[in-house]
Computed example of a mutant assay.
Amino acid sequence: MSDITRELRITGRVQGVAYRAWTRSRAEALGLTGFVQNESDGSVTAVVHGPKDRVEALITECHSGPGAAAVRDVRVTDASAPDLATFEIRRG
């Protein structure tokens, strides 16, 4: 199966609730690479790269997020593969 890359824009109560750490943990468990960061408008952006079924599994999980989150929407677009060997948290 070929790898895909998707950019996720997650809105709702997603900052200050460990959303980035949760996303990194889930991405690492799925063997994905990329990054996640907070945005100044209160949203979270993630770029996720890996096998299609695993990327889609993470996207599904991002609709819920960690327990304290209240996700309103997850917008998904195609993206260019990041030049990363791991999944990292970026300071946005």
Rank of each mutant, 00 (worst) to 15 (best):
E61C: 10
A21T: 06
Q15Y: 06
A46W: 02
A46D: 00
T5M: 13
S40N: 03
R90K: 07
G92P: 04
R75K: 14
C62A: 07
D41C: 03
E28N: 10
V74L: 08
L32T: 00
H49C: 06
E88L: 11
D73C: 05
D3N: 13
S2A: 15
I59Q: 11
H63Y: 05
T60K: 14
G31C: 04
V47I: 07
A70G: 06
A81T: 14
T23R: 00
S25L: 15
R13V: 14
V14F: 01
V44R: 02
T45D: 04
G16Q: 12
P66F: 13
T60S: 12
V36P: 05
S40M: 01
T86K: 12
D73R: 10
T33A: 03
G65M: 11
R26W: 04
E7V: 09
A27T: 09
R6N: 00
S40F: 00
I89K: 05
L30I: 02
L8A: 07
D3V: 05
S64N: 12
Y19R: 10
R9V: 11
T33I: 07
F87G: 01
E56C: 11
W22C: 01
Y19A: 08
K52S: 14
W22T: 03
T45R: 12
L58A: 01
S25F: 10
A46M: 02
S40H: 02
I59K: 11
G34C: 04
T86F: 14
F35W: 14
D78Y: 10
T33M: 01
P66V: 13
V47R: 06
R6I: 01
V48G: 00
T11C: 12
A29P: 06
V71N: 01
Q15R: 03
A21Y: 12
K52W: 11
E56M: 07
A70S: 13
T77Q: 02
S64C: 08
V55S: 01
I4H: 00
A18S: 14
R75M: 08
Q15H: 05
I59F: 10
I4V: 11
V17M: 02
S2W: 15
T86P: 04
D41T: 00
T77L: 04
R13E: 13
D53G: 07
T23V: 12
G67H: 15
I10D: 08
A85W: 12
A68N: 09
D53W: 06
G12Q: 08
V17E: 01
E39M: 10
A21I: 05
R26Y: 05
E61H: 13
A85M: 13
V44G: 06
E7Q: 13
V14E: 11
M1V: 13
H63P: 04
G12E: 05
R54Q: 15
V74C: 04
A79M: 00
I89C: 05
E56Q: 11
S80K: 15
S25Q: 15
A29V: 03
H63Q: 05
G16L: 10
R20Q: 12
Y19D: 06
D83S: 15
T60Q: 12
T11W: 05
A27W: 01
G50V: 10
S80Q: 15
A27H: 03
S43G: 08
N38F: 08
R13C: 10
G12T: 09
T60W: 10
V74Q: 06
L30G: 06
P51F: 14
G65P: 12
R72F: 10
H49G: 00
